[in-house]
């Protein structure tokens, strides 16, 4: 048991930054990303014995992170659709609920935060596949081959998704700039 705990600790220490940053790019909320990162590693802990080694361990962990992030976003969107009134204030902390369009990525320098906010607002509106491909390529800096392994797609399909994501982002950013009078 102690040996398995040591190796699990190594896995967590090696991959926690990647998992957290991927989650935060999808969820655009630090607290949610922290919770999600915990859920990812709990899943890793329970599924470690079943891991057959067909892909690398990092690809496997990325896949779990992406799937859990997308599940989280789907649940969140379902709640939004059925919630007739959303509270301005967070029920637990009493703080004002922050809109995703005001998301401040903790890894972005102060002078670039405004641009990053608009970019993340546009990313939030992409389809699931485009969002995943774009985040993994441009933010996590995975290769198209690695992204293909995570998403179970060919490199060509990934390349196409990335191009379409960029085109879609360009249009959405133009809209955002217009709305803000920039």
């Amino acid at each position: 048991m102690e040996d398995s705990n040591i190796s699990f600790r190594e896995i967590v220490d090696t991959h926690k930054v990647r998992v957290f940053n991927t989650a935060i790019s999808f969820l655009q909320n630090r607290e949610d990303a922290e919770d999600l990162a915990q859920e990812v590693f709990i899943e890793v802990y329970h599924s470690l014995e079943k891991f057959k080694g067909e892909s690398s361990i990092s690809t496997w962990i990325y896949r779990i992170t992406v799937n859990k992030s997308l599940d989280f976003l789907r649940k969140k969107n379902r709640k939004k659709r059925f919630g007739f009134m959303t509270s301005l204030f967070n029920k637990e902390t009493g703080e004002i609920n922050v809109d995703a369009s005001h998301f401040d990525h903790p890894g972005i320098l102060l002078e670039k935060k405004e641009n990053a906010r608009m970019l993340f607002e546009a990313i939030e509106q992409l389809s699931e596949n485009q969002k995943t491909a774009f985040i993994l390529f441009h933010i996590e800096e995975l290769s198209q081959k690695e992204i293909g392994e995570v998403m179970s797609l060919s490199s060509k399909a990934v390349e196409s998704l990335i191009q379409r994501a960029k085109a879609a982002l360009r249009l959405k950013l133009e809209d955002i700039y217009k709305k803000r009078g920039i």
Binding site: V12, V17, I24, Q38, F41, G107, A116
Partner: peptide, 17 residues
């Protein structure tokens, strides 16, 4: 873009759960 760091207690939180 710099990488953001998760909580320093992440491992403990995971094992507690």
């Amino acid at each position: 873009m710099q990488k953001a760091e998760p909580s320093v207690f992440l491992f403990e939180q995971i094992t507690a759960k």
